[in-house]
Nucleic acid binder design. Structure first.
Length: 557
RNA sequence: UGGGGUAUAGCCAAGUCGGUAAGGCACCAGACUUUGACUCUGGCAUGCGUAGGUUCGAGUCCUGCUACCCCAGCCA
């Protein structure tokens, strides 16, 4: 994260905060943000945008950033998610320091403030059934009508609400509602429910409560209690804002200075869908290998795939934040992944689809150790030695018997460079019974050793290769986008899934990769960036996940 | 005339008081190249949803249209 970026980049939220500072809206011109996940699922790339936006906004203004679990609905939430969410946010680099909170920490206060609203005649207990409440609410174009229980006295409401808390009523039989206006054109202001009766075991408060606050009431109170100044949320909460403000303006503790809700557009990516239902189905149907499948845009999946936090940060910086719904081209994300890995990973060689090359003018037992730079753009990554032998492997598509125009690779009578080694020239090849190339015969020219300064001839192509006798067998998991088409949110289904999204190859890597650690990242030249899969890698055979491929302007036409 | 939003290039997106359309991705052309990668150079909106108006001057102001998104959970 470039701190200068933080200071110079511009978006409508920063503009609003700048205005608040100019107007001294908040004491000491504080800026305090928060990320409020509900612990009911895994975080994904869309959450990353929200997390980093909140964190960076706080950092830009020397403010604070809280992590708060919005755990107001125990029937849907689970501790299982709390740990994974914390791990993902930490990994992304957003630091909440000592400010980890839970909405459930505030249940007592929320109850207290609800009583205050009742006392002010601003809330009432309603006995209507869920169906009746829906009917009384009206529709988008028709006003609602008052509940017959709307005019209960303060004392009666107080008593009833206390009884609700004490478990005297069955689930769903009563609710506490804000008393606002059943005819409001904004449905969210038609006496929204603020407490419901629900007997569910809460991961934090156990069975202490049988009533739980609704989001619309809980959220502003949580924000205000924590001293949040700018409560950033997604666009669909825009018409909840009047109620957010109503709550805070009617609570004495908060009326004078309370947080401001600002809505922004969520991130959507092409070829991607992150909806919980869709993801869960993929996992349940075993279309993918769990929530951390590298093809998923979950944070866990991206991490397992080898994507860096830095890449995600730079990407989020660059896409910006605005209020228009938009879908970012996945190519932009991939660009920032390559960009971050370019000078930070060793550049090695691996052959994924091997075909044997015999160098006929080399003795059978030839073994020569060649020194190669690990990254020509970053010499601090050092060098390594690679074994050169009579028999080597190259990738099958680097040889053609009848090459098309502008094919720069190996073909009969053509000479190419073996990266880090010598020029070789093809003089023969062997076909198997199916007419497939099974062996290529070449001669090498000892004059052309890499680094020797040889300038006698030039070649058009440079091939990567691996010794056939001195190597590290490895598995390569190649990924394509999970979806063939751009998702249409709700309607996208299995038919959009790219059946080629996973392609497993068994091949060979340099011996250098023998000691590769879990999650360690490499570039395999002319293929892409890979990282060691922590799940499938075994002691004697590494498994590499394709993080992102290299670009290529070569199109076989 | 239910309410709330949004429209700047193929995709994101900046554009503070009206002063003559940033940047990134993608793409195209060329240079360089021991990765057909990287890097570098050049190209890529006489126009900002649309029709009018105000003005010396409009993406920015005014008026009328149009398109798309969100809202009728005791979910968040």
């Amino acid at each position: 994260m470039e701190s200068e970026n933080l200071k110079t980049s511009s978006n409508f939220i920063y503009n609003l905060i700048d205005e608040d500072i100019k107007n001294n809206t908040f004491t000491d011109n504080r800026v305090h943000t928060r990320f409020p996940p509900e612990p009911n699922g895994y975080l994904h790339i869309g959450h990353a945008k929200a997390i980093l936006l909140n964190y960076n906004t706080a950092k830009r203004y020397d403010g604070k950033f809280n992590l708060r679990f919005d755990d107001t609905n125990p029937s849907k939430e689970d501790v299982e998610y709390v740990e994974s969410i914390k791990e993902d946010i930490k990994w992304l680099g957003a630091d909440w320091e000592d400010r980890l909170f839970y909405a459930s920490d505030y249940f007592d206060k929320m109850y207290f403030y609800a009583v205050e609203l009742i006392n002010k005649g601003l809330a009432y207990v309603d006995d209507l059934s869920p169906e009746e409440i829906r009917e009384y609410r009206g529709t988008l174009t028709q006003p609602g009508k008052n509940s017959p229980y709307r005019d209960r006295t303060v004392d009666e409401n107080l008593k009833l609400f206390e009884n609700m808390k004490n478990g005297e009523y069955s689930d769903g039989s009563k609710v506490l509602r804000a008393k606002i206006n059943m005819e409001s054109p904004n449905i969210n202001m038609r006496d929204p429910i603020i407490y419901r009766i629900m007997r569910a075991h809460h991961h934090n408060t156990g069975d202490k409560w049988c009533i739980y606050p609704m989001y619309d009431y809980a959220h502003p109170v949580e924000d205000a209690i924590e001293g949040i100044t700018h409560s950033l949320c997604s666009l669909e909460f825009e018409d909840h804002r009047p109620f957010y403000n109503w709550v805070l303006e009617n609570i004495e503790d908060f009326k004078d200075e309370h947080p401001r809700q600002i809505e922004f557009a969520k991130l959507f990516l092409t070829n991607t869908i992150v909806g919980k239902r869709f993801l869960k189905k993929l996992v349940d149907d075993q279309v993918v290998d769990g929530w951390d499948d590298p093809r998923l845009m979950t944070i866990a999946g991206l991490r397992r795939r080898g994507v860096t936090p830095g890449a995600i940060q730079n990407f989020c910086d660059e896409i910006g934040v605005a209020k228009s719904n938009s879908t970012v081209d996945i190519a932009m994300f991939e660009h920032f992944i390559r960009d971050d890995l370019k000078t930070t990973t060793p550049r090695c060689m691996a052959v994924l689809d091997p075909v044997k090359v015999v160098i006929t003018n080399l003795p059978d037992d030839h073994l020569e150790w060649l020194e190669m730079s690990n990254n020509q753009e970053n010499e601090s990554l050092g060098t390594r030695r690679i074994p050169f032998t009579k028999e080597i492997y190259i990738d099958r598509d680097d040889f053609m018997v009848e090459p098309p125009k502008k094919y720069h690779r190996l073909y009969p009578e053509n000479e190419v460079r073996l990266m880090g080694a010598y020029f070789i020239k093809c003089h023969d090849y062997i076909l198997d019974d199916n007419g497939r190339v099974s062996e290529i015969h070449c001669t090498y020219d000892p004059e052309t050793k890499s680094g020797s300064g040889f300038t006698g001839r030039k070649v058009k192509g440079t091939l990567h290769w691996v010794s056939a006798s001195e190597n590290q067998p490895a598995t390569f998991r190649l990924f394509e986008h999970l979806l063939k088409e751009d998702p249409d949110s709700e309607t996208t289904n299995e038919s959009a899934i790219n059946e080629n999204s996973l392609n497993v190859k068994d091949g060979f890597a340099e011996v250098y990769l023998k000691d590769a650690k879990n999650s360690e990242r490499f570039q395999f030249v002319r293929h892409g960036y890979f990282s060691v899969d922590p799940k499938y890698t075994s002691k004697d055979k590494p498994v590499f996940n394709l993080t992102v491929n290299l670009k290529s302007s070569w199109k076989i036409k």
